[in-house]
Simulated scan of single mutants.
Amino acid sequence: MTVIAQNLVWGVRRKTIVNDVSLDVAEGETLGLIGPNGSGKSSLLRLLSGLKAPQSGRVEILGQDIAGMSRKVMARQVAFVQQNATTDTIVSVRDVVRLGRTPHRSALAGWTAADEAAVSTALGPVDMADLRAQAWQTLSGGERQRVHIARALAQSPRVMFLDEPTNHLDIHHQIEILRMVRRLDLTSIIALHDLNLAAMFCDRIVVLQAGTVAACGTPAEVLTQTLLRKVFRVEAEVSFGPEPGQPHIRFSGV
């Protein structure tokens, strides 16, 4: 397994936000995290990626307990793409992606041919190579998300965490970004709020409810009428199209 979490607990003051969560993710797998607002998806992502330390429990990535790994070593293995990242600084697309090379360079090291190659390679899968000189402020929301994924790719990670990367994007860009993530040769853990997108692009899904794991399995196993009623408190029809094992959810009254 690439990522293993055991009995993670984390909270703020007296409120427990992530409560005894355990999961594992195989190499090359795309795991989706879904759940109602406030269910703990973003907090769990930050615990799994080492951005937060659990109050109890442990996380292993590539066989190592991340509690004993330095930030620099973690950044060479793990990339995190947050939702709606922005900056007021006047920078180009290339400048943003160059930041992904920081974990691989010492403080006094100059920019190398290997660094430049990594940036160019990262721009390819996100289809932003032709816009490498364009100013960040002129990009659309979908283009900015693709650049942030390119910056993550420039880190040369083996695991990528994405926190609602399609939030506030139109449906075309939502599908475009998730299809691109699926094509990458990486292990990916993605927090999503759109259940049909989770069904389309995730190998397995973990459903969170009030900080605990309510269900875990393939989309077909997890996205049932009973679970949608219990966890999301909605009535829906679940049907299956031409893609084997891929459920489609139609909410009642829609």
Rank of each mutant, 00 (worst) to 15 (best):
V96I: 15
P103I: 01
T112N: 06
S106Q: 14
R94D: 00
T89N: 03
G57Q: 03
L62T: 12
D65Y: 12
A67G: 13
A67W: 05
N84E: 15
P103K: 05
A67L: 10
R98L: 14
S92M: 05
A67T: 12
K52A: 14
A75Q: 05
N84D: 15
R94I: 01
Q83T: 11
K52Y: 15
I34E: 08
L62V: 07
D65C: 08
V96L: 06
V93M: 10
A85T: 13
Q77G: 00
S92P: 06
T102P: 00
P54N: 06
L62H: 06
A107C: 08
V96Q: 04
H104K: 03
A113F: 01
D88E: 14
L51C: 03
L47R: 07
D88K: 09
R101Y: 03
M74P: 02
Q64H: 13
G110L: 10
G57M: 09
S106G: 15
L33Q: 07
P54W: 10
R101E: 08
L108V: 14
M74E: 04
L99R: 11
A79G: 14
W111G: 10
L48Y: 01
I90G: 01
A113L: 12
A53E: 13
G50Y: 02
Q82P: 11
L62I: 04
S92A: 07
L45E: 05
V59T: 10
T89C: 09
E60C: 09
N37S: 14
Q82F: 12
K41V: 07
A53H: 08
S56G: 13
Q77F: 00
I34R: 03
I90Q: 13
L48C: 09
Q82Y: 04
T112E: 11
G38R: 09
T87W: 00
Q64W: 05
L51P: 00
A79W: 02
A107W: 15
R94C: 01
G35I: 07
E29H: 11
L108T: 13
M74Q: 13
R58V: 06
T102F: 13
S39M: 02
S70P: 01
K72D: 01
A75D: 01
V81H: 08
V97F: 13
L108R: 10
K41S: 04
L51G: 02
R101A: 03
T89D: 11
S49G: 12
G110K: 11
A67I: 03
G32F: 02
G57K: 13
K52W: 09
T30I: 14
S43E: 04
P103R: 07
S49D: 04
S49Y: 02
G110P: 13
A79R: 04
R71Y: 00
I66Q: 06
V59F: 03
R58C: 10
V96H: 03
I90V: 15
L99I: 06
L51M: 12
R98K: 15
